[in-house]
Amino acid sequence: MILKGENILKQYHHHGGLINALDHVSFTVGKGDFVTVTGPSGSGKSTLLLSLFGLIRLTSGTVFFDGKRIDNISDKHLTDIRKKSVGYILQSFALIPYLTTIQNVMIPLALEKIARREQIKRAGEILDYVGLSDRMEHLPRELSAGQQQRVAIARSIVHRPSIIMADEPTGNLDPTLSLEILDFLRKINQENKITIMMVTHSPVAAEYGTMKLHLNEGKIVNRKS
């Protein structure tokens, strides 16, 4: 087990009332799993993904990562876990617009204060791995959507995380590019044994999961392994 959530509750104040974005959700993710989380809009998929490592603070519930409880630790420690062990891929690619491809990929390594030479070596290798070795000095705006998402993927794995949290990674891509990215994520999952937890709207993308969670109104209503 790499990630475990127990009775996760996330409540929002809305028009004077409380809304349960996540309503006592529990799940367990094993090392090397490819978990897909599906559900209609507003079902709490993204909230679940972002809350597990502290990007959204939980109302209650417990989260274990690598056997250690992380829902009650300080922001500094959660930040440290994100920096070393988690990679994020977002629907909007989340690249820094004024940095080149390789500079974007080097950011997680820079945050870990890895030496510049090592940063360049590892970022180069990863960009080669995602097929963008000829686009290293391009700015994000000079890349296609598919290429930008591959840069985001490269950035999410360059620091060799234990788990990748992907929030609608194919949401901005056409079906062909979506399949390309999904295949790529599967390749990362299988070749590098990196656990992936992916939120998606797409039934096709959901099929890539070795474990599938379906949420509705903040509750897991279906799970398949």
């Binding site: 920096k83 820094i96 950035r155």
Partner: peptide, 16 residues
């Protein structure tokens, strides 16, 4: 703001 969010997501501390 978004860039700050991205960096925080990737593990940038408040001190960063």
């Amino acid at each position: 703001k978004r860039e700050i969010g991205i960096l925080r997501m990737m593990g940038a501390e408040r001190s960063t």
